[in-house]
Write a protein that binds this DNA or RNA. Sequence first.
DNA 1: GAAAAACCTGCAACAAAGTTGCAATAATTC
DNA 2: GAATTATTGCAACTTTGTTGCAGGTTTTTC
Lengths: 134, 134
Amino acid sequence: MEARAMLKAAGLYCTAARLAVVDSLLQASGRPIKPSTISAQLGTRFDRVTVYRTLDSLVHADLVHKVFIEERACHYELAHRCSKTQCHPHFTCTCCGHTHCLTQLKIPMAQSPHLGFIVQRQQVRLEGLCPDCA
Amino acid sequence: MEARAMLKAAGLYCTAARLAVVDSLLQASGRPIKPSTISAQLGTRFDRVTVYRTLDSLVHADLVHKVFIEERACHYELAHRCSKTQCHPHFTCTCCGHTHCLTQLKIPMAQSPHLGFIVQRQQVRLEGLCPDCA
DNA sequence: GAAAAACCTGCAACAAAGTTGCAATAATTC
DNA sequence: GAATTATTGCAACTTTGTTGCAGGTTTTTC
């Protein structure tokens, strides 16, 4: 009932599609996934368009973050362990292509770069070799 | 003749299309731009496909960097003032949508997050309000 | 400089991501 | 449970980016 509670708390209609999408994200074991993957997991239960719109709602309610784009597709993950100003960094292996969430790596927030700029959010992506490929 | 020299040095064929694309990037005044913008600037002189393939060549030769994706399109810029391991950070205004290159802001390279990970490259994106919108 | 080799380019066709409008359906509210 | 409000499915569409192949340029070689 975790998912149901999250939706309630965010003031969103609690629909079958939303529960299913949140479940997909929960089962992604912390890895950002893309709409087409979710769509494939849900089979014919829900339309592709519904998945897109559902993700939009969830992002808008700040339950889900649009993390990055890869292979021409946005990747999403549950907004766990993220502060308002900074999500955890992500590490993508240049060899196997897998992405890891570095939830334990803290990176200091950048200072305002020039007079007048107000930094609200910082996103860090690392690239390199993961332990399996190194 | 700047562009011509760059291509020569990189060992690339010096073609009209490549000179034109490099010129577009030079004239972008340091802002990352997307292929469709370049294509529009070049008018009917070159095919859309040629722009994509030209950018691929330039990226492959490390003359140009694929900086980030926005509005479902890759954005490119000349590989000026970038170290091997880190490009300058980019700042995108959440209000007006403009992106600024923060060439003067130095961000320390992240340490290897866990035993076994080898970090080769780091990318930082900042979001917030630019001086015009703040 | 001309011929040969190596490499680019345009065209057409295609694939995939994401968006929009609208009618039908489901979740809340009272 | 009826009225209200929000969500969903479908079809059609836009845009980005890719591929194959024939024809055209740039370099290299002599």
